[in-house]
Amino acid sequence: MKAAARTSRPLLLAGGAVLLLALALIALTFARPSASASAPAASAPAAAPAEGSADVGFARDMAVHHQQAVEMSFIVRDRTSDEAVRRLAFDIINTQANQRGMLLGWLDLWGRPISSPGAPMAWMGHSFTPRGDGALMPGMATDAELDGLRAAEGRKAEVLFLRLMTVHHKAGADMASAAASSAGTDVIRNLAAGMVRSQQSEIALMADMLRERGASAS
């Protein structure tokens, strides 16, 4: 109960930051400099990606994937005093909360709902069906695993977090790689390619951190 209480307020604050970032993104996208009488007419904005596009599907699915990564990072931050793990958690919170805000902002700009009744990852040719244990997509932790992280402390919490986040990042990098090669908009292709690089780098970092703690990713 105490762990849940510690986690809820930061998650609320992160959610507010995500919303503010999304609104700022929309405002910047629609902002246009005033045209003079002699200036050429501005080009028409590109058409929004289709509902079944890789762009829309990736934005929805990665926003959900990132939300859990942020949640796990807030949990471990309160379960250990190790500075290296807390620093990694802080980096994940900031990076993935900001990226999630961008994804939600693009969905709003395109006029697409943030959720869909369809199966997740269908846009990349997968037929993943949520199992009902909290893991909505590959790589996501189950409810039981999250409860275990909340109950752990110290080195045990560190190792569990690093293992869960390694699996989470690997699946996230696979999803981002698919979007980087199949999305129709530059903004999604570029964002997804950056996610692949950063998450692969953190996977390597977490492997080193696990070895330092006498553990492995499995």
Rank of each mutant, 00 (worst) to 15 (best):
G132N: 03
G134Q: 03
G134N: 05
G134R: 02
A135N: 08
L136H: 11
M137S: 00
P138N: 10
G139W: 09
T142W: 00
T142I: 06
A144G: 07
A144T: 08
E145S: 11
G148R: 15
G148D: 10
G148H: 01
L149I: 03
R150Q: 13
R150V: 01
A151M: 06
A152K: 04
E153S: 10
E153K: 04
E153F: 10
G154D: 07
G154T: 03
R155C: 00
A157V: 05
E158F: 04
E158M: 06
V159L: 01
L160E: 06
L160Y: 02
F161I: 10
F161S: 08
F161D: 08
L164A: 05
L164N: 03
M165H: 12
T166A: 14
T166R: 14
H169M: 07
A173C: 10
A173V: 14
A173Y: 09
D174Y: 11
M175R: 07
A176W: 07
S177K: 13
S177D: 10
S181Y: 04
S182C: 04
G184K: 08
T185K: 01
T185N: 01
T185D: 07
D186M: 05
I188D: 06
I188Q: 01
N190S: 13
L191E: 09
A192E: 06
A193S: 14
G194S: 13
V196M: 01
R197M: 14
R197Q: 14
S198C: 05
S198W: 03
Q199H: 08
Q199D: 06
Q199L: 12
Q200P: 09
Q200F: 11
S201N: 14
S201T: 15
S201H: 12
S201D: 14
E202N: 12
A204H: 14
M206T: 13
